[in-house]
Design a binder for these strands. Sequence first.
DNA 1: TTATAATTTCAGAAATTTCTGAAAATGCGA
DNA 2: TCGCATTTTCAGAAATTTCTGAAATTATAA
Lengths: 179, 179
Amino acid sequence: MNLPPNIESLVVHFGEMGSRWGFNRTVGQMLALIVFSEIPLNADQIAESLGISRGNVSMGLKELQSWRLIRTQPQPGDRKDYFIPNGTVWELGLQVMQERRKREVDPTLSMLRGQLMNSDDDSNNYAQQKMREIHDLLELLIGWFDDIHKMNPDNLKTLLKLGSGVGKVLDMKDKVLRK
Amino acid sequence: MNLPPNIESLVVHFGEMGSRWGFNRTVGQMLALIVFSEIPLNADQIAESLGISRGNVSMGLKELQSWRLIRTQPQPGDRKDYFIPNGTVWELGLQVMQERRKREVDPTLSMLRGQLMNSDDDSNNYAQQKMREIHDLLELLIGWFDDIHKMNPDNLKTLLKLGSGVGKVLDMKDKVLRK
DNA sequence: TTATAATTTCAGAAATTTCTGAAAATGCGA
DNA sequence: TCGCATTTTCAGAAATTTCTGAAATTATAA
């Protein structure tokens, strides 16, 4: 890896975290490289910088595109593909959350839906009761994610900053509405 | 695997999802088995039900305990360890989120803190600017997680149900406070 | 204590994931 | 269309993760 030292440590760290975030080491490194680079990069530059094979880069780029985290930007006078982050840091963050929801939550929700559908209405069944609890929790969570994703960044930021303070606002809402 | 068919499909599914949730297949299967079982289970029963080795079960149980997702419950007249879920489905969900935050977000936040600390105050540096953006986003996210975790379940449920409706409540708050 | 039951450990085997690099496919200007 | 530049694919190799099972450790009842 032949990079400025501050960039290199970022790349190494994102590589180590990669697998925890749902992709693998090289894909994590590639993401860091593209995000922290001021200029668009092509596949050869990425392979060169990270010291990995061209084929591996091709697969990694496809993966990052399937996550909608990067996109190409044509460079006049060069037919190579040049890649840049697909939005601001904030947008990339939301994108990661949405994509992980799709991969980590949605399949389980459908599975539970299916199970609960074609099971006898034996509502005393312990396992079935647990299934419903998980199902309801996931449905709530997904609904919330969808809503969040529709909010404009400023409101969302306010909401996050407010944190549990929302509890107070909710109480206040009750009081106001009760009048 | 020798289980009632409805339980078996749950176990298989949780196994498949396991690696996406931060552990491996067997650990996922073990979690499902324990959560969906009405009675506490011991290690031998788990090994037997899933058709895996005793040693593997021992490692998996340690993993699940390190996530605080299960705990032992002594059974009078039996010195084996019997395992049960460490709380309600809701609590397990929160626990998974908290644990993943620790493993997936905290390390990156510290790394960025470090980088931003001992870097020259060259605030025009593009990479440094991006680092700060990510740093601030993660800090916001973590603060919010902490807050959420402190809320009582009912308020939290209300909050989630409200979703982007919070936007309206926030507007209202502004109006009320402005008076 | 001692004997027995239960759990943990961990070296090597098995399974899975990731990576390479050459061949195939694709895109594009002339 | 042809010829060259670029990207993708994928079989096998390499790296990593997971699993087994026997030995070591720990816990407890007598």
